[in-house]
Design a protein around this nucleic acid. Structure first.
Lengths: 206, 206
DNA sequence: TTGCGATGTATCGAGCCGATACATCGGGAC
DNA sequence: GTCCCGATGTATCGGCTCGATACATCGCAA
């Protein structure tokens, strides 16, 4: 999954590890805290070995070269890498629908076609619906066996599931009806709904 | 973290691996899908080696022995194990506040004291607030650099954070005001708020 | 001038997952 | 009657990922 993320970012611009990590943190904000170096560098090595990325020779004209021995290693994506990225982005397995996988795929939604977007959105919905049904089962069947805290945890989880399903349904219906991302109104209408602390920063783009 | 969960479950009753896994799935429903065997069995081995659990000799009077060579292995917690469980449950590090750690600790909240519960609840809140601020930062600073899908993902994440903070704040105020888990009203009031599909199962305990 | 925080690359041990193998048992399909 | 499938059960292996750690440079502030 990280593979997909790295390939996607390098498609936008050549980068070195540190940059990649920061970019990853802002783009995948929620679903993935911040990738660790213990993951990042080995993965870069692996991708390079596979021929999907390569070291960019001396990007010193743009980025100052740090004047040291062990300088930055800037990577760029190769033609094979682009191809592989497109494949990964389109093909869907079970891992596409769990938090990390869905997050990465969603982040690169604008680089794929509507059919794929719908497939992924619906797969994710099915996944969350299953989790939701599992929680309902538990709350219905095992409620008397569980203590108050555990119950509350399950209820909170159930609530989150219901919310996510509604979110997904909105996205799906948006995709279907042509207007791909018409999110402004939604953000507007939600604000009115139930927010105890309205001093939210001004989020609309200029 | 799994260590804590296993110890906690074995404190309720002796169990074998398969049971443990199912029990884990129902108790930790949300935060943790279902533990894999590739994790469970090595962990049991490790806990046994550490002296925190031991194999219960022939529980065949209660559980039918399966009449096979490689029968069930039933584990029970030791005195040292109970002690260790209490320690783990009370002491808090950074890992206590991420999803998995918080979920497990919360599940066993009824086995600890109010001070510890408050500490964990507040630590978790701090963690989520940090994530929330990070997301606000991104949405405020990098909004024009990100495409609509990425933005929507961040907004969705921000929404979830705000919701969780509110949930935690409610729990904290409940803890402080003495009435430990008075969750009934909350579930009731929420139902009215914004639920398109009210056929929720009957959750109240008898 | 000292020292700390940001920038950078890299490795190691340990936890965890998914796939897989092996084995028994009960029940429904044919 | 038998055959196969799903639930019950224990166990291992490869591979991904994290957190801790090490090492090195740079700019800035005390």
């Amino acid at each position: 999954m990280l593979e997909l993320a790295i390939l996607g970012l390098l498609q936008e611009a050549p980068m070195h590890g540190y940059e990649l990590r920061k970019e990853l943190a802002t783009k995948l904000g929620t679903l993935r805290a911040a990738i660790s170096y213990g993951t990042l560098y080995p993965t870069l090595k692996r991708l390079k070995l596979a021929g999907w990325i390569s070291e960019a020779e001396a990007a010193s004209d743009i980025i100052p070269p740090m004047t040291s021995k062990r300088g930055r290693v800037v990577y760029k994506i190769t033609a094979e890498g682009k191809e592989h990225f497109a494949d990964l982005l389109t093909q869907t397995g079970p891992e596409t629908y769990d938090d990390a996988g869905f997050g990465v795929h969603f982040t690169f939604f604008s680089r794929t076609d509507r059919a794929t977007r719908l497939r992924i959105l619906e797969g994710r919905r099915r996944r969350i619906e299953e989790r939701r049904e599992g929680l309902r089962e538990i709350l219905a069947r095992a409620a008397d066996r569980l203590d108050a805290y555990t119950l509350e945890l399950q209820r909170h989880g159930l609530d989150a599931c219901e919310r996510e399903v509604r979110w997904l349904e909105e996205l799906i219906s948006n995709e279907r009806s042509g207007r791909t991302p018409a999110f402004r109104q939604r953000a507007e209408s939600q604000r009115a709904e139930s927010n105890p602390e309205p001093p939210r920063p001004h989020l609309d783009r200029p």
